[in-house]
């Protein structure tokens, strides 16, 4: 067995710094709007703010734990078996998060249903393990995971805000629209998720395109 196979090519900590990783995850490489990762929870649990934020919290817990864990054992990873190790690590933390929710936030656990176990297949987490966790130190991995969690919070929070306010006239269950404003039932149904996400994505892209177009003129 060759020695070179033991270590990943970029095992030395020469990637972006922790601060760069943290900032990039929030807006410039926002997981929802720029990477288009983790679409399943973005569509499925954003009918209201409470389940959306519970999902963000559970995902953040798994993302941070798994990224730091992978970073700690990054020198032991074999390149061809790394995805297996990522999945194993993620699945463990997801199961812990699922049990914790069922024990201490039971109503939310019921509301989220199968979407908590499905965090295992959330591509944001495996992408961060692959891009950052398996290549950089634990502190950078932590900052990277935290930044992406905040980005995920912005993604889910914005979709859920649009859907809950339009669909139910509430935000976090608190009334924000007067009763005379009609409720758009479609927004809390599955088609509403696609429509809200598409419109927000269009808005983000449109905003991004603006300065460039000005520069061209």
């Amino acid at each position: 067995m060759a020695v070179a196979e033991l270590e990943l090519p970029a095992a030395v900590d020469d990637g972006p710094t922790a601060a760069e990783r943290f900032i990039a995850g929030i807006l410039p490489e926002n997981p929802t709007f720029r990477q288009l990762l983790g679409m399943c929870p973005t569509l499925a649990v954003t009918a209201a703010m409470k389940p959306a934020l519970t999902m963000v919290a559970a995902t953040a817990f798994v993302l941070i734990s798994a990224n730091v864990m992978v970073s700690l054992i990054r020198h032991l990873l074999k390149p061809h078996l790394r995805i297996l190790v990522f999945t194993l690590t993620i699945a463990t933390f997801v199961t812990i998060a699922d049990r914790l929710l069922a024990a201490y936030l039971y109503p939310m656990s019921v509301a989220l249903g199968p979407y908590v176990p499905l965090i295992i297949v959330n591509c944001i987490i495996i992408a961060r393990c692959e891009v950052c966790g398996s290549k950089q130190g634990p502190f950078t991995a932590f900052a990277d995971a935290a930044g992406n969690s905040l980005g995920f919070l912005i993604g889910l929070g914005s979709v859920a805000t649009v859907r809950e306010i339009l669909g139910m006239g509430t935000w976090f269950g608190l009334p924000v629209l007067p009763a005379v404003v009609p409720r758009w039932v479609i927004m809390v149904m599955p088609p509403g998720a696609f429509i809200a996400l598409a419109l927000l994505l269009a808005l983000v892209n449109w905003y991004q395109a603006r300065p460039k177009r000005r520069a061209e003129v």
């Binding site: 758009w184 479609i186 927004m187 149904m189």
Partner: peptide, 10 residues
């Protein structure tokens, strides 16, 4: 179809 689902009652 949009309003049919959005405002089913109407």
């Amino acid at each position: 179809a949009f309003v049919m689902v959005a405002f089913a009652a109407s």
